[in-house]
Each structure stands twice: as structure tokens, then as C-alpha cells.
Nucleic acid binder design. Structure first.
Length: 243
DNA sequence: AACGTACCCTGCCGGC
DNA sequence: TGCCGGCAGGGTACGT
């Protein structure tokens, strides 16, 4: 489920609970997960996010690289089912992931850099620019999901951002004017910030403006929201105010 | 190079 | 009620 906003929230929660603590035990409950090196005894120096990855920096040049994919989530109270538990003196984090698409790997620093090298700019960074989107003629909505062009935007926030920027998701990415890309950049930021602002309660309280609102009225102009499929993903937009 | 499709898994939902 | 197909907010591998 998670996109950048949800991953950011998770990363902050993990950091608050586990930063600076020593790993006492690792419990692997799913044979799909294989951890190369022994992590017990290492200290968690930092927990941070890049795109939709969560990275645990450990002592001894080791990094735990986690991707939640569709259904991954960390819990601090032991759930009925989970794939992995990281146990520390300050408590444990349980990695629950019903669809089991999520990935966990132990990497050295150089391997981590390589693993993240292909990612595009962080949308919330001051230096972020969207010029890479002009490299492709695929629909702008599809380009937004390409992590090499911009990192961390997923299907929901792509829809939300395009609605905010009043752009038709089907437009070829390389045909956007610089001014329209600027609008899109603001739309992405605003949508992501709104998500992050929900905090840990995000799943209970989060609402969307266009995502999953087919046939319901546009919140700006009242026109019925349309659903189309682009690159096999549901796409929602207002046919009147998104041009 | 750039684009489309199949696939990895499980849970949930609507329709019959 | 019970079963079944379709669908899901991720990314990758592979074919054209």
C-alpha cells in the first residue's frame, strides 16, 4: 500500500523507537526472506527513507534495505502474522506483509549506493526538478510512476498530484510546458505533504480527492470523475478541469 | 532505447 | 451462506 508519504511516516516511527539501540535478536518467519549477515549485536545508528525504501544504517558497514511494496507495514505490537521481527532493548519492530511482495536485504555501503543509484530526485527536496519527465513521451501519469524519473510517487499520489496541477494524466510527458511541470511539482509536493501530515493514523483518516472516486463529483467543478487504465493501473481524473 | 505484458502473493469484495 | 473471478496504493524480468 505505501507510497512515499506512508513510508516516510513509517521511517519516522521506526527511528523514534529504535534509533541508537542494539539489535538483540532477529526473527525470520518467512523463508522468502534470507539475511546474508548476522545482525545481532549491531547498533541501529540511523533509520531513513529514500524513495519508497526504508534504510537501517547499522554499525560495521551494514545496512538493512527494506521495501514495503504493496502490503508491507511495521508494527510495534506483535501481530498475529509477520515475516520478520527486529528485537532491541527498547522493543521490537514486526514486519507484517500479507502479500509477501516486500523485500529485505542486508547490504554493505557500496552495495547500498548501487541499489539506490537509479532513483530519480526526491520530490520534497529543495533541489528537485521534473526535467527528467520530459525524456519520455509516455503519458505523464505513467512517467510519474517511473522511479528513475522521480522517486517515491505511486499510483495514488500520481492521481492526486495531477488533479491539483489540473493536468490530464494521458498527456505525453514530453509535451508538458515548463510552466505545467512547475504546477505539477507543486501538486506533487502538496499531495505528499498532506499525506505525511496525517501521521501514524494515516490509514484511519486519509481521504483522497480523485483516487478511487470514479463517477463521483469533482471537488472543484462537480463534473463526474472518470476512470481509465494506463499501464495497467487505475487512473482517475476530472475530464473538465484537467487538461 | 522505449514500451507493453506477465508475474510475484494474499486478502477482500461484489455478484451469483 | 459459499464459492469464484477480479482487483489491489509495488517493482522486475522479459519480449518486441
Amino acid at each position: 500500500m505505501p507510497e512515499l508519504a506512508e513510508v516516510e511516516i513509517q521511517s519516522r516511527m521506526l527511528s523514534r523507537r529504535l534509533r541508537g539501540t542494539r539489535i538483540r535478536a532477529i526473527e525470520v518467519r518467512d523463508p522468502k526472506i534470507q539475511l546474508r549477515d548476522r545482525l545481532i549485536g549491531r547498533t541501529i545508528r540511523r533509520i531513513w527513507r529514500r524513495a519508497k525504501f526504508i534504510i537501517f544504517d547499522l554499525t560495521g558497514d551494514r545496512h538493512l534495505l527494506v521495501h514495503l511494496r504493496m502490503t508491507g507495514w511495521f508494527e510495534f505490537v506483535q501481530p498475529a502474522r509477520y515475516r520478520l521481527a527486529i528485537v532491541t532493548a527498547k522493543g521490537a519492530a514486526y514486519f507484517a506483509d500479507s502479500r509477501r511482495f516486500g523485500t529485505v536485504a542486508v547490504l554493505r555501503g557500496d552495495e547500498l549506493r548501487r541499489a539506490l543509484a537509479h532513483l530519480g530526485p526526491e520530490p520534497l527536496a529543495r533541489s528537485c526538478d521534473l526535467t527528467r519527465l520530459a525524456r519520455t513521451r509516455r503519458p505523464i501519469k505513467v512517467a510519474l510512476l517511473d522511479q528513475r524519473l522521480i522517486a517515491g510517487v505511486g499510483n495514488i499520489y500520481a492521481n492526486e498530484a495531477l488533479w491539483r496541477a489540473r493536468l490530464d494524466p494521458r498527456r505525453p510527458a514530453n509535451r508538458l510546458q515548463a510552466k505545467e511541470r512547475q504546477r505539477l511539482q507543486h501538486g506533487i509536493r502538496a499531495a505528499l505533504r498532506k499525506g505525511i501530515a496525517y501521521g501514524p493514523q494515516i490509514f484511519e483518516v486519509q481521504t483522497f480527492t480523485v483516487y478511487d472516486r470514479a463517477l463521483q463529483p469533482c471537488r472543484r467543478c462537480g463534473t463526474r470523475i472518470r476512470r481509465v487504465v494506463l499501464a495497467q493501473r487505475s487512473t482517475f481524473f476530472c475530464p473538465r478541469c484537467q487538461r
